[in-house]
Design a binder for these strands. Structure first.
Lengths: 137, 137, 137, 137
DNA sequence: GTGGTCTAGACCACC
DNA sequence: GTGGTCTAGACCACG
């Protein structure tokens, strides 16, 4: 599992952790039942106050992503992957809906929006395939 | 000009005002040279602290949307419309790019994304035309 | 609104606050839209660290009971009463179910349980009416 | 004797063990004089830290349920059954009292509570008789 | 004035 | 060793 924090980007640190853990669960980098680093350990590796990690883990617990095993630590709860993935897809859907709405409100024709969309798709596909190529080397 | 504030949606109130003024300029509801309400007046009609209006106007000034006429108040600067429109289109473009990127990262196929996009387009087109119909009555 | 804290009863302080606020909402002592004391104020009156109050309010927010109004404080969200009441009734129902289950498992006959239940009902009714009488004086 | 542990349900593991041993004594699955598994043995079968078993046994000793036989281990003390049964009945009584009290406080009428109680009784009776049927097969 | 975040350090129960 | 709670004090954005 890889977590990286940017303390100066406006998003609260605990929130960054929450998102990245959910992202890791959704992408399969963290599987159900797997232990996550202890509060103190993660705090040390990220050079962050343990309270902040604690808070992130609390949020993840109340979102049903983590479960604590008494005295042993925290692990990814069963079923977490499914909920994280569906959450993520729903988020994307909502944002797509929103940007389309704003585009139409701004006076863009559906065809103009469609062209922008296809352009974005081409650029991103190119970028990611380039990345994949680089990884292959 | 129509401005509506929601004090409990997380977005700072001054930011809500900035966005809605820019929106109104971009859509033509506010034209260059037109005076905007004074700080005190707007504060009273929105039932909001004058400091907040003041701050919103400051941001709009430094963004080149408003200009102070000494002793007479504020008016929409010449050329504001063009910059607001282009800002808006750029913002939409960026967000579209971003949501496409996330969708691909989440493992969606381009065709799935395209289907979501077309669905959103249909729904929004239907919604807005219905709204226009209602306005016509 | 009346909140009283017992720092030595095992239940975390923030949890005691959460429960009592929900209780007050359910009983109508706090109505939708009403402001609750500010974090600092409540902290002072209860002689408790503001962080602890903050935490209680956070929980109440994520439970949909409170909403923050930017820069002005927190108020009871619309619809909070309904959800608090239904939560409470559901809790009572679950506990009743549980105690009946345990009673039967312990070998008690339904009639014995019923007698205990009626006894409890009589005692509580007597106690509460006595209380009501005392309040009347 | 059957003991099952859930490390992620919030109740301390040693407490879960204490309850289940008392339950087994009350129900007759463990009779006075019968030896209980050694700390190490139970720790191994439950895959739990021996310290935890040790603590559970300590509590059971101070509650008068278990007795140490020097060098031979622990056995159920004489009279343990009676005290476990009475403890259990008292606990049930208390909880019934409490739930009735809360129900009345929540504004429920005695008749409503009674209806809930009878409903719970029916459901549990049905559930347990079905279980008994299944066991018979 | 308001809430929100973060740090530092302490204490506790549990395993 | 683990997580959970609490205190104290600081800083920030917002109104």
């Amino acid at each position: 599992m890889l977590i990286s924090i940017d303390p100066s980007n406006g998003i609260p640190i605990y929130e960054q952790i929450v998102r990245q853990v959910k992202f890791n669960v959704a992408s399969g980098a963290l599987v159900s039942g797997q232990m996550v680093p202890s509060v103190r350990e993660l705090a040390k590796t990220l050079a962050i106050n343990p309270n902040t990690i604690q808070r992130a883990y609390q949020v993840l617990q109340s979102d049903g992503v983590l479960e604590t095993l008494r005295g042993r630590g925290q692990h990814v709860s069963p079923g977490a992957k499914r909920s994280c993935v569906s959450q993520r897809l729903q988020l994307i859907q909502e944002r797509l809906e929103l940007v389309v709405e704003e585009g139409l409100q701004a006076g863009l024709e559906p065809d103009q929006l469609r062209a922008s969309f296809e352009g974005a798709l081409r650029r991103q596909a190119a970028g990611s395939s380039k990345l994949a190529d680089e990884e292959r080397t």
